[in-house]
């Protein structure tokens, strides 16, 4: 079952939400690929699966909680080690809204 075709605008909207910059060729290619994924999902949706509970996790269990015990985190030098632009005590980020 098909009938769903993503428009170029829809592809651009989804890309903007994911902060992806796409050129026109990519919009065209990804539109085709996403349409085919949606068609696949629609094929599944057409199956008689109303009584099958959704599978959200690979394990069929619950309540994997941990006790509320605090442990020291990373030393700050280590925490900042991979930061692209560390300051003395933090992660510097570019101006927002610029």
């Amino acid at each position: 079952m098909s009938g769903v075709e993503l428009t170029a605008d829809e592809v651009r909207h989804v890309a903007a939400l994911a902060r992806l910059g796409l050129d026109d060729a990519e919009v065209e290619r990804l539109g085709r690929e996403l349409t085919s994924i949606l068609a696949h999902v629609n094929t599944i949706a057409a199956l008689p699966i109303a009584d099958v509970p959704p599978t959200k996790h690979s394990r069929d269990s619950a309540d994997s909680l941990r006790p509320d015990v605090a442990r020291p985190g990373l030393p700050r030098e280590d925490a900042l080690r991979n930061a692209p632009d560390p300051s003395a005590d933090g992660f510097r980020v570019p101006p927002i809204g610029a």
């Binding site: 925490a79 300051s87 005590d89 933090g90 992660f91 510097r92 980020v93 570019p94 101006p95 927002i96």
Partner: peptide, 9 residues
């Protein structure tokens, strides 16, 4: 300006 911000996690 271009000073940006620092994030405290």
């Amino acid at each position: 300006g271009s000073a940006g911000s620092v994030v405290d996690f």
